[in-house]
Design a binder for these strands. Structure first.
Length: 125
DNA sequence: GCATTGACGAAGG
DNA sequence: CCCTTCGCCAATG
């Protein structure tokens, strides 16, 4: 279950480890195979659209996340694999995307426009 | 406790 | 059309 908002404004009584990150992870894990989204889209869905950086920052902590977070499906608004250097190896991201059926050329997702999956649109239905 | 940084994004020059 | 600046918010020095 996704909690739509967990911004600092609304203090949620969280069991223990619950925060902006958790929401991000949940959303990212729901990205369909072969699709990608952007940090801004996730931020927008979470209600912090003006803070896309927080999403990226959250992803930085996603390394040790339990079910592995498919961070490779999250790129910047340009479809560029800006976070590839944060993976185990700089090539890992492209690799994973390729396995998802996503074509990557020069650190950029081909057909990003059609591959784009917006949680605010897809999950709000 | 202030200054800098960041896996971003939009706007301005 | 490319480059710079600003905003956003949390973490880190």
């Amino acid at each position: 279950m996704i909690n739509k908002i967990s911004s600092s404004k609304e203090k949620i009584k969280t069991p223990k480890e619950y925060s902006f990150f958790t929401d991000v992870y949940d959303v990212v894990r729901q990205i369909p195979k072969g699709k990608v989204t952007s940090y801004g889209a996730i931020a927008n869905y979470l209600g912090t659209k003006l803070s896309a950086r927080m999403v990226g920052w959250a992803m930085n902590a996603a390394h040790g996340a339990k079910p592995k977070v498919p961070a490779q499906r999250v790129v910047n608004r340009n479809g560029m694999l800006t976070g590839k250097f944060h993976f185990e190896t700089p090539t890992k991201m492209e690799e994973l995307l390729k396995k998802d059926g996503v074509t990557v050329r020069k650190d950029t997702v081909i057909d990003f426009k059609t591959r784009f999956w917006d949680p605010a649109t897809e999950l709000s239905l």
